[in-house]
């Protein structure tokens, strides 16, 4: 009896030693020398692997950061400035602070504003729909409403609003990784500076048709009327191809353009509610 136990123990121990030796030899043979700083940098990164930095994942980004001469143009949108500062400190490199950004949907073509002209009956995918035709409304530029951006968002920061048919960005969760921008076949989504106190203004339309055509397709379309350009004291608004664009680097958030816009295509975010004019007059009196 005891010899059986002994033989068993001996056999298993020998097997264990043999396999351990094999593992050790293989590990030695295929060992890859790596810069230890890559591991350190990777540990600093958020680990979301969202691809927002332009690399395939956090490790790939860490490798690029370690190899890079300077960190100009290297930015992790999820970790933001604090993480990038830590990365720079670990690598002994300089980094300039970047303004935080957020995704904005440049289309106000809700189901109310933009009447449907056909019924889309294919796979629920903007990519499929965009490959098929110009869209189920008179506007060839706006949101197709199938929600590819919401599917692409790794942070659950975009949701489709069933009442408007448009995506809504949750700015608390949005990290400006840019996956939604890449997923949108119409180029409706833009990453813009978040702005002081998260206040910002943007033209929520990219319709390049002439005013009349655009207005016919959507009541909230930018018609390229130039009113916003005229009222802007900072030359921040431009109209190109019949559509206005606000340069967020020049915009000082005076909101004159939004007031002047006849179609309401200019959207203001996180400003205190504007009191109606009459009320203001009363207050002064």
């Amino acid at each position: 009896m005891s010899s059986t136990i002994l033989i068993t123990i001996a056999c298993l121990s020998a097997l264990g030693l043999l396999l351990a030796a094999v593992l050790y030899i293989v590990a030695q043979k295929f060992k890859v020398e790596e810069d230890p700083r890559i591991d350190d940098v990777e540990a600093l990164l958020p680990g979301a692997n969202c691809g927002g930095c332009g690399s395939a994942g956090c490790r790939a980004f860490a490798e690029r950061c370690v190899k890079a001469e300077t960190l100009d143009g290297y930015f992790c949108p999820v970790g933001g400035n604090p993480v990038m500062k830590q990365v720079a400190a670990r690598l002994g490199k300089e980094i300039a602070e970047a303004a935080p950004r957020v995704a904005v949907v440049r289309c106000s073509g809700s189901l109310d504003n933009r009447p449907r002209t056909s019924i889309y009956n294919g796979e629920k995918s903007c990519k499929v729909m965009a490959g098929l035709y110009s869209g189920d409304t008179g506007c060839r530029y706006g949101c197709l409403g199938q929600g590819d951006c919401a599917v692409a968002c790794p942070f659950d920061a975009i949701e489709m609003n069933p009442r408007t048919g448009l995506p809504v960005v949750n700015e608390e969760r949005c990290t400006a990784c840019g996956n939604c921008v890449a997923a949108c076949p119409k180029g409706v989504i833009e990453l813009r500076n978040k702005g002081p106190k998260s206040r910002r203004l943007f033209v929520s339309c990219i319709n390049q048709d002439k005013g009349g055509v655009a207005r016919k397709a959507c009541s909230a379309a930018c018609i390229g009327c130039m009113k916003c350009v005229k009222v802007c004291p900072f030359e921040a608004v431009k109209v190109e191809n019949n559509v206005a664009y606000i340069d967020f680097n020049k915009c000082r958030l005076c909101r004159k353009c939004a007031e002047a816009c006849p179609t309401g295509a200019i959207v203001e975010v996180n400003f205190p509610i504007r009191l109606p004019k009459e009320v203001e007059v009363e207050k002064q009196a």
């Binding site: 294919g122 796979e123 995918s125 990519k127 499929v128 490959g131």
Partner: peptide, 12 residues
Amino acid sequence: LPLLDNIRVGKA
């Protein structure tokens, strides 16, 4: 299932 709808996009 809308097989071809998606395959067409992938093929392109």
